[in-house]
Structure formats: C-alpha cells, structure tokens
Design a protein around this nucleic acid. Structure first.
Length: 426
RNA sequence: GUGGCCGUAGCUCAUCAGGUAGAGCACCGGAUUGUGGCUCCGGAGGUGGGGGGUUCGAGACCCCUCGGCCACCCCA
C-alpha cells in the first residue's frame, strides 16, 4: 500500500524549524502588542462571494487560485486566500463601524499556485489592519512598525521599502484610461502577457518583467501626474512622517498591487536574497473596501507579511537564533526500582522547579544508551539514578558540558539544581 | 496554468556498454561488571517516486503519472 503523502504545496513544519517559527511569531505579537494592536482570530473558511467581491473578479487569485467547494448544504465556500477580506467582514459583522480598530491576525492562507521557493499552496501570514482613520499617520505607523520588526529580527539590512500612491479611485480610473489609450497604440510591441492584461488588469502591466514592455513604459503616462490635490497632500504627509522617523524608502511610480481594493498608499518590503519571490511584506490603504463589503463607509489600511519568506530570509542571512536543546536536565534511571523512583522524582522536581526543562528518560535500556540520549538531548546536566543511589537516597549529579560527576542527596537536589543553573546563566 | 532541469536507503550522494545496488552522516547494538561526547567493530534500513513499454534481462532506454527545484505567471 502506498503511504499517504501531504498535499502538494502544503508542508509540514518540523521541530528543527518550528522553534524558528515560534521565535518569529513571538517577536511579532510582542511588537504588535507594544503598539496597541489586538489580535483577532478569524475562520479559515468563508463564503466564496466574500473574496470575489473584495479581491476583484478578474484577479488571478479569484479566477484560478482559490480552493473553492460546496459544503453539504450546497453553499459556496472558499479556503481564505488572504486575510483582509475576512477581517473586514468581521469588522462589519460585529458593529465596529465608526470606531478605530487596530487589529492583527496570523494563520494559514491557501492559493492553488505552482509551488516554488517561498511560495506554497498553504502559506502563513501575519496581517495587520487599522480601521476608522483616514490620515496618513496610519500608514506611517504601519511602516514604522515593520521597520522595527526587521530590526528585531536582524533582517533590516536585507529588505528595502518601496512606496507609491495610487491616488483616489477617480485618479486611478483616469490614469487607467490614459494608460490603456497609450498602450493600445503600441499593442503589437507589448509582450504576450501584457497584451492580455491590457483588457483585464492594465495597471499590472507596469511591473512587467519584459524589457521591451518596460522600454515602452518609459514614455507612458506616469501615475503620480494623475493624483488629485488631496492624494498628493496625503502622500506628502506620509513621506514627511517617514522622514521624521528616519525610515528610508524608494519611490516607485510603477508599484501597483495585485488586489483591486487598494487606493492611495501602497507599499512593499522587498529583498533580493530570496530569488524570484522577493516581496516579504506588502500592503496599503483600502478606504473603499468596508463599504464594498456592505458596511458603512470606513477608511482602512493594512499589510500582510509572508512568514515562510521571513523564515527563509532569517536562515539565508544566518540571523536565526540557535535551536534550543530538548531539555536542560535529563534524568537517567536504570533498573525497575530506579525507573519507578526516577519517574516520581521527576514529578516532584517539576512541582518544586516549574521552569525547569526536565526530560525523564523513557523506554528503559542500559546506562550507556540512556547516557547517550542524555547527551543528544542537549541537556546541560544528567541526573543518574541506579540501584546504589536508590539505596543511599542520592542521585548522580553529572554536568555534561564540563565538570565532574558527584553524588548529591535527594533532599538537597532542589537547591543544587537552582545553584547549578544560576551559574549557567552567564 | 507554461517552459527548463531533476527524482537511487531518514539525509547527502556514488555505481553500471542495460545483467537484479553501495558509501558517508544519522539510527540501533558491542569494545571486562553502572555512564554520553572521540575512535574501532557489528547491525538494521531501498519493490532504485509510482505505473506501463522495449529487451532473454532495466534503477539505468521510451511513454505516462506523481513529486522536487528554477524561471515565467502570480503574490506574502
């Protein structure tokens, strides 16, 4: 019989890596907490309609990447391909309209794409959203928060910020028209993909990788020229705030996002250390989305970061913290009586020293094989219990990383352990 | 979804004009009685991703399929 394998593009995260994920998640949640953001936990499955309305009917995500299915009631459901839509839905559903909300969430997202480095079918994001505030200090805070996160993780040297404004919906519509008019005249000079996008999603042509297309775009109408006064002022305020905070950025008038709901500010944190999947974090303002999903008009902005990519980047840059050992103390017990006593001793140590990372050997075996496991656990100390110790009510106290084994009475063990690890701290 | 490269023990790889597979690491055990890390010895572990075809005979050749990597596309 063939062994069952995981679904393509849906990977296990093994213990040798999970500690890194935990580290990343902890740094994120601590930082968000420090900025006053609160966690919201959202379902992984939503009505299909939520995503087609939020992300845009003609986007690739909706057209060909969603995991959609009918449930037993015949309802059309979809595994969330991104987090913002569900977050907006919750915002509306729970009557948060009119209040300022600073929220974050983390969890798996699903897109049926061809897997490659930094791109899985089940991948993980941390998303951050701010509802109810229209001013640019919101985007500035989101960006500054990211910058601090990169510093905490040791990634700041490898990521750069790209920034642009899409203007108002009207600005964007006028620009779109002008761009289509210009490109249509030169349609035959566009690459194949761009020709297709000319009808479906013309703004995406701006970040085409085709040299020929890029050459053509040099002469094309430029998005910043189409911004109305308000959008210009908004963008100016944002850059002033970033300058004041000392966050550097690169203005990229070609930067557009793949999801339809953005307006005004869009930004991306990119790296060249990860091959083709260079975007590690991206977001922007989406003032129209709340209303679009049936709520009262409510300004909003947010971003999401890809955790797989951040983990890869930490590994690539070798800024990942070292993997912790399985235990600090490993208790070895040989013989039936000793195994029994050792098991009880382990529990009593856990009572008296709750923070102690103690592994009690299980599975029996010789001193030799148990000691071998003690060593491989990464423990600093082995506690050895055999017939002799049992008879004397002592325990062998053996430092594994230098030092001599000595015998310690079981009554004094707690104090000896405290003493040992106080010195280990340094 | 498209294109290129690839798929041999848990991992990294080797072998051979096509004649039914090895090494290192890891794992388990041993090297005088109850003790790890170094060394030495031994053991276990592969229907050669899966299926079909060519052949007297295929892991090696052909096809399909599944999977991996890279790029496109897309995006975090």
């Amino acid at each position: 019989m063939n062994p069952i394998r995981a679904i393509r593009g849906m990977n296990d995260i093994l213990p040798q890596d999970s500690y890194l994920w935990q580290h990343l998640e902890k740094v994120c949640s601590d930082l968000l907490d420090a900025y006053g953001y609160r966690e919201i936990r959202l379902p992984v499955v939503e009505q299909t309609q939520l995503f087609s309305r939020a992300i845009g009917e003609v986007t690739d995500i909706v057209e060909k990447e969603m995991y959609s299915f009918e449930d037993r009631n015949g309802d059309g459901l979809t595994l969330r391909p991104e987090g913002t839509a569900g977050c907006v839905r919750a915002f509306n559903q729970h009557g948060m309209a009119g209040t300022q909300q600073k929220l974050w969430y983390a969890g798996p997202m699903f897109r049926h794409e061809r897997p490659q480095l930094g791109r899985q079918r089940q991948f993980h994001q941390v998303g951050v959203e701010v509802f109810g505030t229209a001013s640019a200090d919101v985007e500035a805070e989101l960006i500054v928060l990211c910058a601090r996160l990169w510093r905490s993780l040791g990634l700041d040297s490898a990521v750069t910020l790209e920034l642009n404004s899409l203007g108002s919906n009207e600005d964007r519509a006028r620009y779109r028209e002008a761009l289509v008019a210009y490109l249509s005249e030169h349609r035959d000079q566009l690459d194949e993909d761009s020709q297709r996008r000319l009808d479906s999603n013309p703004l995406r042509i701006l970040d085409s990788k085709s040299e020929q297309t890029q050459a053509l775009l040099a002469e094309a109408p430029s998005l910043p020229d189409f911004l109305d006064e308000e959008s210009q002022a908004h963008f100016a305020q944002l850059t002033a705030l970033l300058d004041a905070a000392g966050v550097s950025y690169r203005l990229n008038p070609r930067l557009v996002r793949g999801l339809d709901y953005y307006n005004r500010t869009v930004f991306e944190w990119v790296t060249d250390a990860l091959g083709a999947q260079g975007t590690v974090c991206a977001g922007g303002r989406y003032d129209g989305l709340v209303e679009q999903l049936g709520g009262k008009p409510n300004p909003a902005a947010g971003f999401a970061m890809g955790l797989e990519r951040l983990v890869l980047l930490m590994q690539e840059l070798k800024v990942a913290p070292a993997a912790p050992g399985q235990a600090d103390v490993y208790l070895v017990a040989v013989g039936e009586g000793a195994a029994l006593a050792g098991f009880a001793l382990g529990e009593s140590l856990r009572d008296s020293l709750p923070g102690l990372r103690l592994q009690v050997h299980s599975g029996g075996g010789s001193f030799k094989s148990q000691m071998k496991k003690a060593d491989r656990s990464g423990a600093q100390l082995a506690l050895v219990l055999g017939e002799n110790e049992l008879a004397e009510r002592t325990v062998g106290f053996k430092p594994l990383r230098g030092g001599e084994q000595r015998s310690v009475s079981q009554d004094a063990l707690e104090e000896e352990l405290k003493h040992f690890f106080e010195h280990e701290e340094h």
